[in-house]
Simulated assay, not measured.
Amino acid sequence: MSSLFAFLHFIAAFALVGALSAQLALLGQEISAGVIRRLRVADAVYGVSATLVAAAGLLRVFYFEKGAAYYFFNAAFLAKLALFVLVGVLSIYPTLKFSSWHRAVKAGAAPRIEAQTLGSLRTTLRLELAGVALLVLCASLMAHGVGSLH
């Protein structure tokens, strides 16, 4: 069962990175109704994959791996957890923007999107991807016994 949850955890993490990358790529295109729909799909995939990463990760911590006492006394794990929360908080801004654009498209209006807004969204998505990369570094350190607070 441990291997199954590790697999689910990894696949969800790969989907999360793919969804963030897709959003960033889509924001490099001319924004149209179709692009907005694809952004919303990528954002939904991101949300589902983030939920699965968290659920599988917590199940691994509490039931399938070394136990909560090990993980919660590991600086690399705590940094990984903090980065996951930070990336989640950063993701709120793009989600709200994509939703507001979708409402405009549904109402039959083409949303007017300023270059500054697109730049802010791209920067936010890059920060999310950087946060995920650092999170993976923390996971690697933790797996190699780095960060123990015991």
Rank of each mutant, 00 (worst) to 15 (best):
S32W: 06
V35H: 03
A55H: 01
A68W: 14
S49I: 09
E128P: 02
K66L: 10
R112D: 10
H9L: 06
V45D: 03
V136N: 02
V136C: 04
A76S: 15
G57W: 09
A139S: 13
A42M: 01
L118K: 15
R126H: 12
V53N: 07
A79G: 12
A42Y: 03
A44P: 00
S99G: 07
E114F: 13
E65A: 12
L86I: 09
A79H: 06
Q116D: 15
L137N: 01
G88E: 05
H9T: 06
G108W: 02
L141P: 03
A115G: 00
A12K: 06
V45Q: 02
L27D: 09
G145Q: 08
A76L: 06
A15F: 14
L127K: 07
Y46Q: 12
V45L: 09
I36A: 00
E128Y: 01
V85C: 01
V105E: 05
L129W: 06
S120H: 07
G28C: 13
A22S: 14
L96D: 01
L59E: 11
L141E: 09
A44H: 12
L58P: 00
V41C: 08
L26T: 08
A33F: 04
Y63C: 12
L90P: 00
S99H: 11
V87T: 06
V105P: 07
L86R: 04
F84Y: 11
W101P: 04
G131A: 01
S21Y: 10
A55F: 14
V48R: 03
R38C: 08
A25R: 12
F73Y: 10
A76Q: 05
V45I: 12
V41R: 09
A107H: 02
V146Y: 13
G34D: 14
L125N: 07
V89W: 00
F64I: 09
A82D: 06
F7S: 08
F84H: 08
E65M: 07
S2V: 11
T51R: 04
F14L: 15
R126C: 12
L26D: 06
L52C: 08
Y63G: 00
F5T: 10
Y93G: 00
A54H: 05
V35S: 07
G18L: 09
L20R: 01
H9N: 06
R122D: 00
I92F: 03
G131P: 03
A133V: 10
L78R: 11
R37K: 15
A79P: 05
A133L: 13
L26E: 03
Y70M: 06
V85N: 00
L52A: 13
A13N: 09
F72V: 13
L52D: 02
F84C: 07
F73H: 15
L59Q: 11
L16C: 11
G147V: 11
F7C: 03
L39I: 01
A50V: 05
D43T: 04
L83D: 03
F64Q: 09
A104W: 02
C138V: 04
L83Y: 07
A69M: 09
L86A: 15
A22L: 13
W101N: 01
V53M: 01
A69N: 09
T95F: 00
G47S: 10
A25L: 15
A68Q: 13
L137S: 10
F14E: 07
T124A: 13
V87D: 05
F7D: 07
T117A: 13
P111M: 05
A110N: 06
